[in-house]
Nucleic acid binder design. Structure first.
Lengths: 224, 224
DNA sequence: GGGTGGTGTTAAGGAAGCGTCAAGACCGGC
DNA sequence: GCCGGTCTTGACGCTTCCTTAACACCACCC
């Protein structure tokens, strides 16, 4: 039975979620603010967390960081419309998906199922290949044309983050946070330097990237 | 059987709707003012709400906000001719569509069917497809005819807002607030430029949009 | 038929973001 | 203490994107 924790301070939403989730055979627990939510998170060990961003006692991103400090349980964020900044910050902080209020129960349930499904086994192929190079995530090795490619630790971490999300756009903030740490989310310089390094070592034509693509203003994308 | 709640204070309209809807096998309940309407909404749990804006006891937007506090049941608004401001305000408050009085019963029935159809099958995966292009919301990726389509950050945000409300009329104010921020709600110029950009990149015939539709004076609508 | 409001289209200037290079700081091993 | 590799930092030119304005177009109404 899938366990869901809902953190929300609005009673009507809390009730609607409790009723609808229980009717679908989810095991539901609730909390009305961030402090109680973090405590419930540690106590209940739910399979997925539904988190409202508009909590009375702390920022939504603080709750997310508190959760992400020790578990990768999927987090679905509820946000009021127009809170573009909050939404982006929440996703950067580690949320998995978001739903804008007011939301349809069907939509939320669908995203819930998707989040649980994604979190389940994660078969994670340890070796990813392109036409020009191969990345072995478990052995931490990269080969190109049969020969090993030497990467520095930072280069490897950056490549690993990109390769673990094939085809997906990874934001600059996310890359910086994962490779350099949460305090470096504005040092876009680093990304430019190290993406250039990776391209020089991996791309057949570094000035015309085929695999490590730039999405101007947003981030980078690894195309297998 | 689809349940419809009609909130209207004019007896002739109420009767006409009751007769026509019942004849099409809808289950109809009615209320004559906002207070009774909100109570009926909670009691009956209809699949769709038809709401007249000219109620005696409260503003139409108040009713909409009351409903939107806990459910996203589709709302179709009836407004008298010339009440442009009320219509926009209603859509901003969360209504899904509107019909101007005097209206043809066929038109209302068509919009009713469309609203019910959209609400039923939830957007299961964060991937939305049309006949000509596919939008992957989680990977931030758009493909058309097998090839990737490159979007700028602003183009992407605008498309995302529209695609996340498929079939629904999204007002200019809401689009501007979500993409550019709350301070830009009068810069309708931006919308014209960027909607044109999206159409040029996504529509098979940009001068005759099939998916990104203009609702003159109101806003835009994404038709899947 | 001419005015009016809303929309579509286009282009140009300036702002912001990106790729590149190189010099200096830092840190390990020897 | 020296040395090689690695990371940080800054500067420059180039590309992309955003903003803004001007104009054409269309539907509608007087």
């Amino acid at each position: 039975m899938t366990k869901v924790l809902v953190i929300d301070d609005e009673a009507p939403i809390l009730n609607a979620l409790r009723i609808n989730l229980a009717a679908r055979q989810y095991e539901v627990s609730t909390a009305a603010d961030g402090t109680a939510g973090l405590a419930a998170m540690a106590r209940e060990r739910p399979d997925v967390l539904i988190l409202d961003l508009g909590l009375p006692d702390m920022e939504g991103t603080e709750v997310i960081k508190g959760v992400r400090g020790w578990t990768s349980t999927p987090i679905i964020v509820l946000s009021a419309w127009g809170q573009e900044g909050q939404k982006v910050a929440a996703l950067d902080a580690g949320a998995d998906d978001y739903v804008t209020k007011p939301f349809g129960m069907d939509e939320l349930l669908a995203r819930l199922r998707a989040a649980v499904r994604r979190a389940a086994p994660a078969p994670a192929e340890p070796v990813v290949s392109t036409g020009h190079f191969t990345v072995d995530l478990s052995a931490k090795r990269v080969t190109s044309g049969g020969a090993d490619v030497r990467l520095t630790p930072t280069e490897w971490q950056l490549l690993e983050v990109l390769v673990r999300h094939p085809g997906r756009l990874v934001t600059q903030r996310q890359l910086l946070a994962e490779v350099w740490g949460p305090g470096y989310q504005n040092e876009a310089n680093y990304l430019r330097v190290y993406v250039a390094n990776l391209r020089r070592k991996l791309e057949p034509d570094p000035s015309r990237p085929r695999y490590l693509l730039t999405e101007t203003g947003m981030g980078y994308r690894f195309r297998p």
